[in-house]
Write a protein that binds this DNA or RNA. Structure first.
Lengths: 327, 327
DNA sequence: CTGAAAGCGCTTACAG
DNA sequence: CTGAAAGCGCTTACAG
């Protein structure tokens, strides 16, 4: 392995000036610069990041803490983070927390020992003080830790209004809203949006809390549909719940979208594969991840961050679980 | 930050014996051991992994190279790898390669500079020589690089036989096999299994090559179904293709499973959410990942590896796209 | 069984 | 503008 020493020797300068040149820190004469460049080239020298880390107490590792990569929402997020990380020369460490504060803390601690550059955190049960005191750059998704930590999230409320209106415009008269877990910020924002849209309509509706879980959602919807067969529209706070609703509906003999229209939220790939295809309020998950990564890297590199709160617009995707609009 | 020096001072020994004790390398008297233990405890000392890496040229980072975490097959694999990595004190770096050899090489190079402990590689277009010469422990999924590199994969051929037989047992008389891309080992093994099972049946069949992509599969199946309306069974080499087939079938007015039965391959979560639920040959992806990680760590820690080839059994999951067995 | 010392490959005041 | 030297926090022959 060729080291900075080899380069210095070949270039006829000291390791200090090689280092200065490589890091663009401090003055280096044009002459020296040229000699170093040539030596680096010739020796195919590449800086040892571990040795550098030991000195600078910084690495180019980014920690991505999320509940579970297995949840269909996260792969795309991870992909986006990794793509932009790669662009900027960072490497991403994957951390599944299972929403367990102990696991989160554990990751934070072990990665800080490795001089991790920063964290992107997606979690519902964030141990706020632990993050607030982590003393390392952080960007949070879907949750505010404190005013100093930038947050990126979807325009959940707006999205819920769009989703609700899609159902209203298509003639639904009795809407079931599948509300997500109450400890989730995004779920609550969606709830607010739904309430705002539905209440200005004077139509019948009901709200049922429902985890973002397929089988549970199916079961809950099956029950509610039995209790109230006049329900003709379902707005689910997540695509997984919507898929459960769709299954319950078809098992209950309801025709979708003729008897019952369904709108989901998330825009997961699976929605397209259902029959009929799921109409949904799609989040731009990739964009969220990309923004989070960029903002984090700016923080790491001490560049100015223009804002602390990033809201990514949401988009209504019309597929087969809704009818064409009534004129 | 407390260092090994602090511990040495407090324990009244040299840093060398502290290091020896901590690494269980070389003799340390009971007395010294006790003093060091106490000092470590009292100072809450934790070894700096970066400094260690610089010396040993080893880290506890594991690189997970996969085509795209966004492909529904991989999140569970990643999860498994991370779970066992965590257990053994390793951290996993996520690398999306897009099947691009340049990206793979790039990752290998940059991570080797960080003294990565080893790689788990899932890829179709592996640049074999590059891996073979990587000079770092590797475990491959679904592909053999060379005899020295352990491989783990599903029992693909067996699985394909099971899947085909499931269709045969349920009265299919004209089966369409959706063969996966020809450059994929697993896809070819599945093809072999299908051929073996179907040829011993003397029934009608056809094979169509079809990428593991939803929309493409849907389109292909729609076309084939039109050409030959007597097809009454489809065996797809992947669940995504099966989902495409299901959609094409329902759009073509076929009743599933009455007119047409469908079996997929993979066991992805989405299969359950379809209507009807997808009958499929499920891989134990979590187990594959867990085995890969364990075998890799054994290699890293220079423990004996009992075998070089691990085949994980596959399981038939019967759901709604197949009928009950005819007696 | 133990410690002094060199070394891993870099960075960074500091003096010139 | 540049180099000698100390230092980042550990590990590891080597001598005793």
């Amino acid at each position: 392995m060729t080291t900075i020493k080899d380069v210095a020797k070949k270039a006829g300068v000291s390791v200090a000036t090689v280092s200065r040149f490589l890091n663009d820190s401090g003055y280096v004469s044009a002459e020296a610069a040229k000699a170093v460049t040539a030596a680096v080239e010739e020796l195919k020298y590449e800086l040892n990041p571990v040795a550098r880390s030991l000195n600078t107490k910084k690495s180019n590792l980014i920690g991505l803490i999320l509940p579970d990569i297995t949840n269909p929402f996260f792969p795309e997020l991870a992909r986006a983070v990794e793509d932009v990380a790669l662009t900027y020369g960072y490497t991403v460490v994957l951390c599944n927390s299972d929403e367990n504060p102990e696991k989160e803390k554990n990751y934070i601690e072990t990665l800080k020992k490795k001089y991790i550059a920063g964290f992107i955190v997606t979690s519902n049960q964030l141990d706020a003080p632990h993050y607030a005191n982590a003393n390392v750059p952080i960007v949070a998704l879907d949750r505010t830790i404190n005013e100093k930590i930038p947050t990126v999230s979807s325009n959940n409320k707006e999205g819920a209004i769009m989703g609700t209106n899609a159902l209203l415009k298509r003639g639904c008269r009795n809407i079931l809203f599948l509300r997500g877990p109450e400890e989730l910020n995004p779920a609550n924002d969606r709830y607010e949006g739904f309430m705002e849209a539905i209440q200005s309509s004077n139509l019948q509706y009901q709200v049922v809390t429902c985890p973002f879980h397929f089988a549970d959602s199916q079961e809950i919807v099956a029950r509610v549909l039995k209790e109230d067969p006049t329900i003709d529209g379902i707005f689910a706070s997540s695509d997984v719940s919507a898929a459960g609703a769709l299954k319950a509906a078809s098992l209950a003999g309801k025709r979708v979208p003729e008897d019952l229209q369904i709108v989901g939220f998330d825009g997961v790939a699976m929605g397209e594969m259902l029959s009929p295809g799921l109409t949904t309020v799609a989040q731009d998950v990739y964009k969220m991840g990309a923004i989070a990564a960029r903002v984090l890297i700016k923080q790491i590199e001490n560049k100015k961050i223009d804002q602390r709160f990033y809201e990514v617009p949401v988009k209504l995707i019309i597929r087969g679980t809704t009818r064409s609009v009534e004129e």
